Structures are given as C-alpha cells and as structure tokens.
Simulated scan of single mutants.
Amino acid sequence: MSIQPNQSIGIIGMGLMGSALMRMTGAERGWDVDPRRCAGVTSADDVFEHCDVIFLCLPNSDVASRVLREAKLHAGQIIIDTSTGDPAEMAALGAELAARGVHYLDATVSGSSAQLLQRDVLVMVGGEAAVFEQCRELFAKFAREAVHVGPCGSGAKMKLVTNLVLGLNRAALAEGLAFAQQLDLELLQTLDVMRRSMAYSRIMDTKGEKMIMQDFTPQAKLSQHLKDVRLMLAASSIPLPLSETHRQLLEKAEMLGFGDADNSAVIKAILEP
C-alpha cells in the first residue's frame, strides 16, 4: 500500500528544504515560525490536525522533538523527519511515537534544496520497512532514489557519515582552489582540470564556481554543516582528525560572518588571515 491521493500532506519548517518539498510533493499546508513563509495555516496545530503525512524540516532533533511532543498527533499519522539530528535522540523519538500509534521515519536528504527541485537527491530512511514502502512513491516525487537503511535513527547515522565525506570534499576543494590562487593559476581553468583528473568529485560541479566567484548565496547554510560536524564528533567513539580540523575551519568562517552564507564560504576561512 502507498500514500493515497486523498491523504493530505503538510510541512513543518518552510525554509529552503521545506519550501522545495512543498513544491515537489504538492503539500497542502506549511507552517513556519516566520509567518511570511506559512502556507494555508495560522499555526502548526493546523498542520498536525489536518494532515495524514507530515514532513519535518527543522534545524535539529532537539527542535523536532519539542515540536512533536507538543503536537496533537493522532494514531496512523506518518511523520517524515528530514532534520539532520542526533541518531540516539531520533531513535528514542521513534519509539515514543510508536507507543502513541504514530509512524516515524527519519528520512535524511543527501543533496541541497536546489538539487531536490531537480529530483537529484538521495533519501536515507530509518524506521519500519513497511512504512518506508508505503512512502516510496512519495519519495519518488522529489528524489532520484530512496533507500531504507535500518530502524529509527539509522537515517540520521547514514546522513552523518555521508555528510562527513561530503563536507571534507568541499573543504578539500576550497583548499585546492586557495592553493592554486597562491600559485597564480587561473582558477576557472584549474577547476576544469580538476574535473578532468582523478581528483574529481561532484562537489566541484555544485560549489567550484561559487567559491571562485565568491557567490555565497545559500543553497545550504554553513552554520548548518557546522552543526552536523559537531554531531559527528559527539557521536564518534574514535578520533576524527580531519573532521576536527574541518570544525575549526567552519567556526572560523562563522566568526568571519559567513554562518548564514552558503557552505562554499568555507574557502574564506582559508583565504582570510
């Protein structure tokens, strides 16, 4: 069984990702703390009362937990939490909601809101396999692929692992371009050569020209990735030396005023003295 046409969809959190999800899923209601972003509702309660499937697009699992514990949920609802949060907290939240008859999927997204609008993201989902299958057609509206990775909390774990590698690829690209600048190489040509070489990663396609042109219009905010790196370090029982260095770079970029800028602004932490 899949989500039926008569089942209504709502969004909690109408930032970049939430707004993109509303457009791609045809969600009927969307709520945000910023009233200018709300769509068809005056409160979060309106979404929880009228919607059968609700996407959460919130800053972290603490906020998601607080919102859900205050919400008037009803048995049979499906909560799809796209927030990148603490895996243990999300697993506990899934168990708590299951006791109330509410289905919970931690469905983390690999890709930006711009990529989601092109159906070019991967969704990594933790929760009951049967509920995942029920939502598969819904995921297909905005993702090129959705994969079930285990019980509640597993989506958050997988997102931290993929974001670790993604973030380090981005930081490596920033350092490489900064190094090329110091060597007086032409940067657009350097980026083209790197794309043709064994150094290639997809991050060059999405962030390379943004770094070179200093265009930090946000696709995904730098401060959000700093939050993710801190979660990685807190969740790991082994040292993560590259991620520790990455944290320091991101904190420097945030201190320089780039927290709300695109995460490609990490290059400023390398270029600035």
Rank of each mutant, 00 (worst) to 15 (best):
A172N: 12
S110A: 15
G94A: 09
M194E: 03
A172W: 12
K159V: 11
S197K: 04
D205Y: 06
T206G: 05
A88Q: 15
E137W: 06
L122T: 15
L164V: 09
D86E: 14
R119Y: 07
G155K: 02
A146H: 12
P87V: 03
L177D: 06
A99L: 13
F139H: 06
V102L: 08
R195T: 09
V149T: 10
R170G: 15
K207Q: 12
D106Q: 05
D192Y: 06
A75V: 07
N169M: 10
E209C: 02
D86Q: 14
Q115D: 13
K159M: 09
L93R: 00
E133M: 06
D215F: 00
C152N: 09
R196C: 15
T108G: 12
P151F: 15
E186G: 05
A71V: 09
A146K: 13
M204D: 12
V121L: 09
M211T: 01
P151N: 10
I79T: 01
A107I: 14
S83H: 01
L185F: 08
L185N: 03
S112C: 13
V131Y: 12
D81I: 11
M124T: 09
M194Q: 02
G208L: 04
C135P: 02
M204W: 05
Q181F: 04
Y200H: 08
C135D: 08
L166R: 08
I212M: 11
K159R: 05
C135H: 07
V123M: 06
A199D: 04
G94R: 01
M204S: 10
S154R: 08
V193R: 05
M213S: 11
A88N: 11
Q134G: 00
F179E: 13
T162C: 15
M158K: 02
V102D: 01
G167K: 00
A199H: 04
V147F: 12
A143T: 11
G153M: 01
V149I: 13
Q214H: 06
G111N: 03
T84I: 13
H103K: 10
Q189T: 15
R119L: 14
A129T: 14
E133W: 06
L73N: 03
K141V: 05
L191H: 05
Q189G: 14
A95I: 06
I203N: 14
F142L: 08
A156H: 03
G76T: 11
C152Y: 01
I79Q: 02
P87M: 08
R119K: 13
A75N: 12
E89F: 01
L188V: 07
E145S: 10
L116F: 04
A95S: 09
T108Q: 04
Q214D: 01
M211I: 06
T84K: 03
V109A: 02
E96K: 08
G167V: 01
G150N: 12
A172R: 11
